[in-house]
């Protein structure tokens, strides 16, 4: 595929994704992987999981994995195009809604309460799909997935600890 049509596909994909991204960046990961891996064939499921891990290892909003996908597909231009498509229209929307006072709309809180479980379910689905991708390639990493899951669930410590432990585990035990 030519670079221009890749850029075009990136923008269209992430534009569509951004408008249904209820619950933030991680909730849309399954759909993102469906688009990136299955529909456009830009990378394998495992590569997708690794890019996500890379984005997690860097500081910043979770949504930046989108920039990394853009980078992989079409370089620096792809990175900016993907980020702009993902964040641009929703930012305009947020800008327009700034003056909305939630106190005047008590039902908005109820709407939020009804939507958050969907987001949480989608985030859990993202985690399972990512885990499947990594465990399928190297079944040895299953304890890392389980340990990291328990650590993040049960403690309030920085997730950097589990990422570091995962790196160490990989360096020591996954060597070919």
């Amino acid at each position: 595929m030519s670079e221009e049509s890749d850029l075009h596909a990136l923008v269209v994909s992430f534009l569509g994704l951004s408008l249904i991204s209820v619950g933030g960046g991680i909730a849309v990961l399954p759909e993102m992987s469906r688009l990136v891996v299955e529909e456009h064939g830009w990378m394998s499921q495992l590569h997708f999981a690794k890019l996500f891990a890379l984005a997690q290892a860097a500081p910043g909003p979770n949504i930046m994995v989108v920039g990394l996908i853009g980078w992989h597909v079409a370089g620096a231009g792809g990175m900016f195009a993907a980020m702009a498509a993902m964040c641009g229209p929703t930012s305009l929307l947020a800008y327009g809604f700034t003056r909305l006072q939630r106190r005047e709309f008590p039902w908005l809180k109820r709407v939020e309460r009804g939507l958050v479980p969907v987001a949480v379910g989608l985030i859990a689905a993202s985690g399972l799909l990512l885990a499947e991708g990594t465990v399928r390639e190297a079944p040895l990493v299953l304890p890392v997935v389980a340990g990291s899951f328990l650590f993040v669930w049960r403690t309030a410590r920085s997730p950097l600890w589990v990422l570091g432990a995962g790196a160490l585990f990989g360096a020591l035990l996954l060597r070919p």
Binding site: V116, V120, A124, G127, L130, W153, L174
Partner: peptide
């Protein structure tokens, strides 16, 4: 590559943990 594989596995577990944490905190 093995280091990245370890980080990817940890990140996957982290996302599941995050979801569970959000879910239990909400008490829906």
């Amino acid at each position: 590559a093995p280091v990245m594989r370890g980080i990817a596995a940890a990140a996957a577990g982290m996302v599941i943990g995050m979801a569970l944490k959000m879910g239990t905190k909400l008490k829906p």
